[in-house]
Computed example of a mutant assay.
Amino acid sequence: MAVWQYLLIVVPKNSIDNNYECIFKNNKTKYLPETDSFWKNFGGDIPSIISEMDQIIPKANWGNDTCLNWKGNGNTDEDNDACICLSDNKSKIESFQFRIDLRKACNITAVLQSILNLCEKNQLVLIDLKGEIFQPNLEDILKSIKASNATRFLSDPIQFFEDLSKNSSDETRA
Rank of each mutant, 00 (worst) to 15 (best):
K28E: 11
L164Y: 14
S148I: 06
C119H: 00
E21R: 09
N73W: 01
G44W: 05
I100K: 03
V111I: 15
E52D: 12
M53Q: 05
L32R: 06
S91P: 07
I9M: 12
S87E: 10
N61M: 09
C67P: 00
V111M: 08
S95D: 13
L112M: 15
N89Y: 01
N69V: 00
P12L: 08
K90D: 00
N41S: 14
D77L: 03
G44I: 11
I50F: 08
S48K: 14
W62L: 05
C106Y: 07
N80K: 04
K13C: 05
P12N: 07
K104T: 03
I57G: 08
S51Q: 13
L86I: 04
D128N: 15
Y6C: 07
D140W: 10
E171N: 11
K166A: 05
K28W: 01
I50Y: 05
N41F: 07
P12D: 08
N26A: 13
K71Y: 09
L7K: 11
C119E: 01
I93W: 03
L118T: 02
L86T: 03
S155N: 15
G63L: 00
G74I: 10
A82P: 05
L142P: 01
I133T: 15
F134E: 10
S95E: 13
L126V: 09
K146E: 13
F153A: 09
F160H: 13
S168V: 15
Y20N: 09
N107K: 07
L102H: 04
E34M: 13
D65C: 00
I56W: 08
K30Y: 12
K25D: 14
W39G: 02
K146G: 07
R173P: 09
I46F: 05
L129K: 10
A150L: 02
C119A: 11
W70K: 02
L86Q: 01
N80S: 11
V10P: 03
K59T: 11
N117G: 02
Q123E: 15
M1V: 08
F160L: 05
A60N: 05
N80C: 14
I50Q: 13
N26G: 03
M1Y: 09
K146M: 06
W39H: 08
N19E: 11
R99K: 13
T29C: 01
A105K: 12
V10W: 02
R152A: 15
F134N: 11
S169N: 15
P157A: 05
I84M: 08
F42Y: 15
N19M: 02
C106F: 06
Q123V: 02
I57V: 10
D140V: 09
D36I: 11
A60W: 01
F38P: 01
N89V: 02
A82W: 03
S87Q: 11
L102F: 01
V10Y: 07
D163V: 01
I141C: 10
Y6W: 09
N18F: 09
W4P: 03
E120H: 04
S95P: 06
K121M: 10
I100Q: 03
S165H: 13
N122T: 03
T29E: 02
D163T: 04
K90V: 00
K92P: 07
S37P: 01
R103W: 00
N41R: 07
